[in-house]
Design a protein around this nucleic acid. Structure first.
Ligand SMILES: [Mn+2]
Ligand SMILES: [Mn+2]
Ligand SMILES: [Mn+2]
Ligand SMILES: [Mn+2]
Lengths: 150, 150
DNA sequence: GATGATTATTAGCCTATGCTAACTTTTTGC
DNA sequence: GCAAAAAGTTAGCATAGGCTAATAATCATC
């Protein structure tokens, strides 16, 4: 048998394997920002509604304990998305605000898209919360167009 | 001011907070099975195509190193999804096969849905790989119906 | 069947994200 | 303004899921 007939050895096969790997690598990459995205989006909302974002309110809405919030806020501060002072509320940096805006935008589009497909609001909200982190710009554009059209 | 006028203190507010938390808790729950789902789906495919699933092939397609695969396979075995013998290929248990079938089914539907929306195949595959873990049964049914219809 | 290449495992490290328990600070209500 | 309640922090623990370096087993080839 020639080399080309070996399992795995064709150029086409190699490209397929590579492109599959890239998909998974991309998903893992997206996964790394999920928590940060959800937090800044929520923080922006709390600030908008209440004038400030308190850890206790973040914890209640995220469904986690206060120490978990504290640790996550530490990472967000380290990454330049929020500022905070001990025992005080949290605020977004410019970068944090920009990310929050983008996340809210994406969340809105995904949610409206699911609703326009006919999904009930509760399930739509739940699914959007997970899906939003995994839609490319292209997909988002298609979602927006579809929701618009319908 | 009466109690009802307090920020956060209405029944409706409390329910909204609760339901938001449930959405996030659900997403975190889904997140916990993502890796296992991707692995069993891939293992099933490799077995179908090659008769066996070798760690080296899993690693190439997942875009991770061999030790990462080894550790993950340890968890899958612990959770009753695969069986394996040292230095040998991996096989699915009944439970693993059932999960793989379910994942493949979901993956197919999400992918076809994205394609039927007009997304290019590369991006569709990439997005499907992330989205598939966050679609409820209801959403999946709507996706299937839409792809069918179009 | 020796031997070099390939594949698999193990040990050890790291980060993220969750938790509980204990402690500190701030806020609230008399 | 003091005491109790609420909120926030810290320490310490666990698991998942990545990695590299080192080691071990298997396979392929002569
Ligand atoms: Mn989300
Ligand atoms: Mn969101
Ligand atoms: Mn996937
Ligand atoms: Mn998949």
């Amino acid at each position: 048998m020639t080399d080309d007939e070996n399992l795995e050895s064709t150029e086409a096969e190699a490209r397929a394997v590579e492109s599959r790997a890239e998909a998974f690598i991309g998903v893992r990459e997206a996964r790394r920002s999920e928590v940060a995205e959800d937090y800044v989006e929520l923080i922006a909302e709390l600030i908008h509604e209440n004038g400030e974002a308190r850890p206790v309110d973040i914890a209640a809405r995220m469904g986690v304990t206060a120490p978990t919030v504290a640790k996550t806020l530490g990472r967000l501060a380290r990454d330049g998305l929020i500022t905070r002072a001990k025992y005080r509320s949290v605020f977004l940096t410019e970068e944090g605000r920009a990310l929050a805006k983008e996340c809210r935008h994406r969340h809105e589009i995904v949610l409206r898209f699911l609703l326009s497909l006919g999904l009930d609001p509760e399930t739509a909200e739940r699914d959007a919360e997970g899906i939003e982190h995994h839609v490319s710009e292209r997909t988002l554009a298609l979602f927006a167009a579809f929701a618009q059209r319908s």
